[in-house]
Design a binder for these strands. Structure first.
Lengths: 204, 204
DNA sequence: AAAAAAGATTGAGTTCGTTCAATTTTGAAG
DNA sequence: CTTCAAAATTGAACGAACTCAATCTTTTTT
């Protein structure tokens, strides 16, 4: 049985997350004060700190929800990968990239990534890092699936290659969010080139 | 002829950098207030902002000086690389990693990396990014030199492979600085494993 | 049902990065 | 040497993240 206290807690958490998510995206992370979020969520500033340890951690909670969605979407793709190596990798990467700006702005990504590096022990920083590992593991799984089908050279270590791919993926994404004017198509182009080159090295 | 004004400017810049460098390392980035730095440098807080746009940018100025040294040291190694692929890569990487904690703490690295992502357009953020590119280019140069000597398969694209290696290098370093208790030897171990695996893929 | 305990909320207060108008210092011109 | 403009320094004031002692609400106990 869910007590009143528990329900209120979930309610407030949701209101804070919703308010922060909307305000961050509309007005920018820096422009939004904790008081603004509190007001929109109909709580006080102090209450926000009962639920999230810092403003940065609140942001990472929001970002983590998005990344969780991407992990889920990626899983279905990895379970039934396209028959071609380059295409399989390309599809997964495109899935990641195209989701990224759906609810989050580049500024939010910059701040989130920055925060996860400078404060790695915060609750949602750990969560974010964990989700990152899941994405990396997903790429490894895809490589493993492709190898099982004889689409790669047999001496390829899926874990090593998967991590390397995820690394470059990540790096290109960082460069993407660091440059506000850079369009998503440029990210695709750069990623496709790298993927093609790697797929070639991996070929059976 | 160097005027008084110019000399004083250089003097103050140096004093601020020295003071900040020492204080950041001794007391931690967050624990040090701009006022503390100003006092140690015998200027006022406001003056610090004449020379550096933010506290984070001041940190990046310090970090950039260190990275510049590493770039210089790396150049001599790339100009006369060891005869074996794995050894050449290993030496360069070890050079990078071993320099990293000489004057900078892990916390300083975390803050610096975070700041360069969240504020990429700041003067020393741009400088830092530029130095990062130099390091990446250096790895590419090393691969190219090795290929020229017939130590790698001839269809290897040095630029692509170099960037990939630098990427993973960087990622492992980030994980290293994110974990305060992790010793440098663990970073070496992880990096050596990856290097060996990659050198194998690259072999002629 | 009342009382006590536990849990949450609140907003005023603290701290520190940053800004800026007033002041001082430097360099050039007369 | 004096005067003036330009450049730099200064520290008080501001704003926003975060803290915490007092208060209020929910749950448990008697």
């Amino acid at each position: 049985m869910t007590g009143l206290r528990e329900r209120q807690k979930a309610d407030r958490t949701g209101r804070i997350l919703d308010a922060a998510s909307r305000l961050f995206r509309d007005q920018g992370y820096d422009a939004v004060r904790i008081e603004d979020i509190a007001a929109a969520a109909e709580v006080s500033a102090g209450t926000c700190y009962n639920y999230f340890s810092t403003k940065g951690d609140l942001l990472l909670a929001i970002v983590s929800m998005e990344v969780q969605e991407v992990v889920d979407a990626g899983r279905t793709l990895v379970d039934a990968p396209p028959p071609d190596t380059a295409q399989a990798l390309g599809s997964l990467i495109r899935l990641y990239y195209d989701h990224s700006l759906h609810y989050l702005s580049k500024e939010m990504w910059r701040k989130a990534m920055a925060f996860s590096i400078e404060a790695p022990d915060t609750p949602f920083s750990q969560r974010y890092t964990e989700l990152d590992s899941m994405l990396s593991a997903q790429v490894c799984d895809l490589i493993a699936a492709l190898r099982k089908r004889g689409l790669t050279r047999p001496d390829l270590d899926p874990a090593t290659v998967g991590q390397i791919i995820f690394c470059t993926l990540n790096q290109m994404f960082i460069e993407f969010v660091k440059s506000d004017p850079m369009p998503l198509t440029d990210l695709h182009r750069a990623s496709d080139a790298q993927t093609a080159s790697l797929a070639n090295l991996m070929r059976a």
